[in-house]
Amino acid sequence: MEHGSYQDQSKATFSLTDEDHTLANSLRFTLNQDPRVTFCGYSIPHPSDARVNIRVQTTGDPASEVLKDSCQDLMLMCQHVRSTFDQAVIDFKNQKILEAMDIKL
């Protein structure tokens, strides 16, 4: 859910349900990396509500677009983490097999 004005779309607060620090803090990180962002932060209005508010203010681009790009960035980062990790695990397992067979590369 987006709270903002129609006149100025560069500032908005996004209210995400069923999310917590896990996503909000990661998003805050990726948003801060975006040079178009002048301010961003998040808060959890009440600890027993599963909801976070993410505030985004930009230099001019619509805040929702910037947030969407940040989500995209975070997703691509995750994909890169996953592929790098999988490769590292495969390499480690292969190394173990080689060591067990006592073969030197």
Partner: peptide, 22 residues
């Protein structure tokens, strides 16, 4: 090692959810 990749996938799903909602 499967747990970690699953965890990363869940974070990806969360991003995707926000993108589709926006």
């Amino acid at each position: 090692e499967v747990l970690f990749t699953e965890a990363v996938k869940i974070l990806e799903d969360k991003c995707e959810r926000v993108i589709t909602e926006l």
